[in-house]
Design a protein around this nucleic acid. Structure first.
Length: 487
RNA sequence: GAGCCAUUAGCUCAGUUGGAAGAGCACCUGACUUUUAAUCAGGGUGUCCCAGGUUCGAGCCCUGGAUGGCUCACCA
């Protein structure tokens, strides 16, 4: 945007602003005590007809008729028409009315009536200029379509496209419903540091920053997991954190560098408890916010009614990819099973990694209706407890909805020696160049050495859940200010 | 990170075979005291994303770059 060259349209508005001042009108007024919001008037016309009301809002359209005029005011609730006449306002005030532009914010006092054409209208007795707008708004009919401008100047998007405002109201209500749910079930909301000396809890590259006074590098957190588990060690039994995490990775319709997650931990629970929590919480929120357990995402009808089916990862692979790993216990045998498939594997790829790759490549895309996939390979689950009867797998599940992973949970690994081993394996991967492998977290290990009760933990990507609930094709549609390159 | 596509007035968009830069809304002037995409008469406000190149001549063709979108890769 060329700030330096003042466009004629903007210049003209500056002149009008000056003219208001010369007429003794402050163009940036004080708070206006409204009596009604636009919607309250249009929905309760019988009650307010003929009565005096005070409304305020942004002028969205103007229709001038010589010595009178109509305009539409938009407030938080919607729009209402106002009508202004020279006879009612007087010479001086009507001259000021004529100086108003689309985009200006005004307060209006007047009686409610209905025009000949049936439009509910406030007949202006006087008005106050609350904020003079110096830039022209986008066109009234087509609105703001340019996707880049909508993200960069979200305030314009919100002014011009009411359905966008609706999405973020829904977002707020969904998050509120989730907090209500968790609070009512006795989970305590806590806040843990966003700046970490060592990051962990996920496979991801972190953002790096620097603290001057301490002269040290810090990372923005990639997950809340390891601090929340320290709190289980500390004695809290049911906790959650719902807040932003940061991952230094690519941007796409499903990825924003900062995003919101919720992680829930519960002592003396396991992943079955987390499954019950997941399907109950999500269906309760859906029922709360939408009054139904059926939603449509991008043309797909989804039924969230619990209980959701449960399949182990191996069962799911057998069902959807027609491959059987049950007999393949060794890495070479697993490689034999997939020898005809195009997978990114080499001599060092282990059985568990192959199974996970097959699942991601051939199974996930089929998982439209809600389903729990249980028992992930230990190699890709360094924080989950391994299964008693088959230590190659873990008590971990992910919930899928519309082919998208919406929840990740496990019976938490509370054996400090096992956890240390897992970190060491991750450290090997890091040394081999895997920047997303977990870092060794000595303090976390120390906390486990004091003893962490058996526990279940659950993580949900809030933005993706909101995408599902608002039928949004891109994560940027549910984040008010998505990350963009500066211009 | 790779491929494809887009970028023209404040906004939404046309722009033919390479031959004088267009429309609607907005804006400006005038008319109009119940309109509502108000109407009527008049007015075009521009770094055609940027930098090179080809050409007598480039919004259009070529090369490089910027930003964005989509797809893929990575991830949640």
């Amino acid at each position: 945007m060329s700030e330096e060259s003042i466009h004629e349209l903007i210049q003209r508005r500056h002149e009008k602003l000056e003219e208001f001042r010369q007429r003794g009108v402050e163009p940036y007024g004080e708070k206006y005590q409204v009596s009604h919001r636009a919607q309250e008037i249009t929905e309760n016309f019988e009650e307010v007809e003929g009565k005096e009301v005070k409304v305020s809002g942004r002028i969205m359209t103007m229709r001038r008729h010589g010595k009178a005029g109509f305009a539409n005011l938009q407030d938080e609730s919607g729009q209402i028409q106002i009508y202004a006449r020279l006879d009612d306002l007087g010479e001086e005030s009507f001259e000021c009315y004529k100086l108003l532009d689309i985009g200006d914010i005004i307060g209006v006092r007047g009686k409610v009536f209905k025009t000949r054409k049936g439009e509910i209208t406030v007949s202006t007795e006087d008005f106050n200029l609350l904020a003079k707008s110096l830039r022209p708004l986008p066109e009234k009919w087509h609105g703001l379509r340019d996707i880049e401008l909508r993200y960069r100047q979200r305030y314009l998007d919100l002014i011009m496209n009411p359905e966008v405002k609706e999405v973020f109201i829904l977002r707020s209500r969904i998050i509120q419903a989730m907090r209500n749910y968790l609070n009512e079930k006795g989970y305590l909301e806590v806040e843990t540091p966003m700046m970490h000396g060592v990051t962990g809890g996920a496979n991801a590259r972190p953002f790096k920053t620097y603290h001057n006074a301490l002269d040290m590098d810090l990372y923005l957190r990639i997950a809340t997991e390891l601090h929340l588990k320290r709190l289980l060690v500390g004695g809290y039994g049911k906790i959650y954190e719902l807040a932003k995490v940061f991952r230094n990775e690519g941007i796409s319709t499903r990825h924003n560098p900062e995003f919101t997650s919720v992680e829930v931990y519960e002592a003396n629970a396991d992943y079955y408890d987390m499954m019950a929590l997941t399907e109950d919480m999500i269906s309760v929120i859906c029922q709360d916010v939408f009054g139904s357990l059926n939603i449509t995402y991008q043309g797909k009808e989804l039924d969230l009614t619990p209980p959701w089916p449960r399949l182990t990862m191996l069962e799911a692979i057998k069902k959807y990819a027609n491959l059987d790993f049950t007999g393949a216990k060794r890495d070479e045998e697993a490689r034999e099973v997939v020898k005809d498939l195009k997978l990114n594997i080499d001599k060092n790829t282990t059985r568990g990694e192959i199974i996970n790759l097959v699942f991601e490549e051939y199974v996930e895309k089929h998982l439209d209706q809600p389903v729990f996939i249980l028992d992930y390979p230990i190699e890709v689950s360094p924080l989950a407890k391994s299964k008693k009867d088959d230590p190659a797998f873990t008590y971990r599940f992910e919930a899928f909805l519309a082919s998208s992973e919406i929840a990740n949970a496990f019976t938490e690994l509370n054996d400090p020696l096992d956890q240390k081993e897992r970190f060491l394996k991750q450290a090997e991967k890091r040394a081999a160049g895997d920047e997303e492998a977990h870092m060794m977290d000595d303090d976390f290990i120390a906390s486990l050495e004091y003893g962490m009760p058996p526990a279940g933990g659950l993580g949900i990507g809030i933005d993706r859940l909101i995408m599902l609930f608002t039928d949004a094709p891109s994560i940027r549609d549910v984040i008010l200010f998505p990350t963009l390159r500066p211009r």
